[in-house]
Every structure is written in structure tokens, then in C-alpha cells.
Simulated scan of single mutants.
Amino acid sequence: MLTPALEHLVKGIVDHPEEVQVLSKSSQRGEVLEVHVHPEDLGRVIGRSGRTAQSLRSVITALADGRRVRVDVVDTDK
């Protein structure tokens, strides 16, 4: 449920929505949602001083209903 919600939110922000991909991985500390976007859209998803990324994390944490979830924005340009 969280992966489609995060994908929908990110697609509304970026210029290349067809390249948005959210991968879900399990770790010892809970679920990790990795956001992959076009390199030109990375700044949009992170936002000034990380505000957009933090807002996305806040929404997903609220939707997680007490479960441990972490949202990582992955730099695919490396």
C-alpha cells in the first residue's frame, strides 16, 4: 500500500514521471522504500534543504500506521 502511494506522490512532482520507480526492501530496522528518479528530477524530489523529501517521509510515516518505514531517495547518476 505504501509503495503505490509514494510512487503517486513522486510522479506528481517530477518532469519525467515515466522514470519513477519505488522499490520496497526489508531490513532489520523495518521496510525501506527506495525512490529512483531521472537524474534531472533528483533536485525536485529532494527540494530545498531536503524539505520535499522530508514531507514525503512524513506522509509515508503517517500512512504506515505505526510500522517502521524509511524512505530513501537514491542518486542513480553514480
Score class of each variant (00 low, 15 high):
H38I: 02
L6H: 04
L2A: 08
L9N: 04
S55E: 10
E34I: 02
L23K: 14
D75L: 05
E7S: 13
V14W: 09
V22I: 15
L23S: 09
V69L: 04
R68H: 14
T52L: 12
E31H: 00
E19M: 12
V37A: 03
D41W: 10
M1V: 07
A64V: 05
V14N: 09
V10S: 04
E18L: 12
R57G: 02
L33M: 11
H8S: 12
V73F: 03
V69W: 03
T76Y: 00
D15H: 14
T76P: 00
V37F: 08
V59D: 02
Q28I: 09
V59F: 04
V37R: 06
S27K: 02
V20H: 06
E7I: 01
D41K: 10
E19Y: 07
D15C: 06
I60S: 05
A5K: 01
V45E: 04
H36F: 13
T76I: 12
P39W: 11
A62I: 01
V71H: 02
V45N: 04
I13G: 07
D77S: 15
D65S: 13
S24H: 07
S26P: 02
R44D: 01
V20P: 04
Q28Y: 01
E34P: 01
T76V: 15
K25Y: 07
T61P: 00
S27F: 01
H16N: 15
T3P: 00
S49K: 14
G50N: 10
D72A: 06
V22R: 03
S55N: 12
R67Q: 15
D15E: 15
R70S: 12
L23H: 11
V73N: 01
G30W: 05
R68I: 00
K78W: 04
I60F: 07
L63C: 09
V59R: 03
L6W: 05
V22D: 08
T52F: 05
L63F: 14
A62T: 11
V14K: 11
D65C: 06
S58P: 00
G66W: 10
A64K: 05
K25H: 14
D15L: 08
S58D: 08
V14Y: 08
G66D: 09
G66I: 08
R29L: 11
D75C: 01
V10I: 13
I46E: 06
L9Y: 04
R29W: 00
V32I: 14
G30S: 09
V14L: 08
V74L: 05
V32F: 01
V71I: 12
E40Q: 14
L56S: 05
E40V: 13
L42F: 15
P17F: 06
K25F: 07
Q54N: 13
S27Q: 06
V14S: 07
D65F: 00
Q21L: 13
V22E: 08
E18I: 07
E31I: 15
K78A: 13
V74I: 15
K78G: 11
K25E: 15
G50I: 10
V69C: 04
I60G: 01
A5E: 09
S24N: 06
R44N: 11
L9M: 15
S55D: 04
L42A: 01
H38C: 01
V45F: 03
V74S: 02
S26R: 14
G66E: 08
D65G: 00
V45G: 04
E40P: 00
S27A: 13
L2Q: 06
D77Q: 13
Q54W: 00
Q21A: 13
S49D: 14
E34Y: 10
R70K: 15
E34D: 14
I46N: 04
G43S: 12
S49R: 15
A53T: 11
